[in-house]
Simulated scan of single mutants.
Amino acid sequence: MSSQTISLSTNRLLLRPVATGDSVLLDAAGTLPDDHFSALPPVDDLIREKGLRSPGDTLSLVVETLASREVVGVVRLTWSQAESGLGQLSFVFDAAHAHRGYCVEAIQALMDMAFTQLPFERLSADCDNRNGAREKPLQRLGLSYRIGSVTPDGKRTYEISRDEWARFYTGSQLVA
């Protein structure tokens, strides 16, 4: 699945490939001081991504509102090289757009794609345990904290399996 051909949409958002014109907005969003864990790679690296074809590949999608076409964040899905069927979710959102549900909505669309169109059996997401605001969308989406997964640098891992996802969701509608 090529990153240059994939776009997802929800009722309020468009998730599209990263473009050269996104640099200023994404560079700012990727260095927000309240995002202790997930800094974005340089925009040129995101543009060069080939999509999800094999383990080790990453798909990055810019999240923009349909109403204003304003960029509000980036969601990423990486196909783990270490474990078969594991995808790693990551995300960065502009704090100016907090508490509007954009983060949950965008990650949900990415999860739907991962479990319905790609060979993922589990998805995980890491976050800094000092950043409770980052954990809330993961919990809202049905990901569970993996007990004992706190690393010395304060990273916590949340996971959801395909079966757990199926119990939480019906299509793209949040049930839980």
Rank of each mutant, 00 (worst) to 15 (best):
G21F: 11
V24A: 13
L25K: 00
L26K: 01
D27G: 11
A29L: 15
A29Y: 05
G30E: 07
G30V: 00
T31I: 07
T31S: 12
T31G: 15
L32V: 07
P33N: 01
D34K: 09
D35L: 15
D35G: 09
F37M: 12
S38L: 12
A39T: 11
A39I: 03
P41I: 09
P41G: 10
P42M: 09
V43R: 00
V43E: 03
D44F: 01
L46H: 03
L46I: 11
I47P: 09
I47Q: 01
E49T: 05
E49A: 07
E49V: 05
K50V: 15
G51N: 04
L52D: 04
L52N: 00
R53I: 14
R53F: 13
S54C: 07
T58V: 13
L59P: 05
L59R: 03
S60I: 09
L61Q: 05
L61F: 02
V62F: 07
V63H: 05
E64A: 14
L66T: 10
A67I: 14
E70R: 13
V74F: 08
W79L: 04
W79V: 06
S80T: 07
S80V: 15
Q81R: 13
A82H: 06
A82W: 04
E83S: 13
E83D: 10
S84D: 09
S84L: 15
G85V: 12
L86I: 14
Q88M: 12
L89S: 03
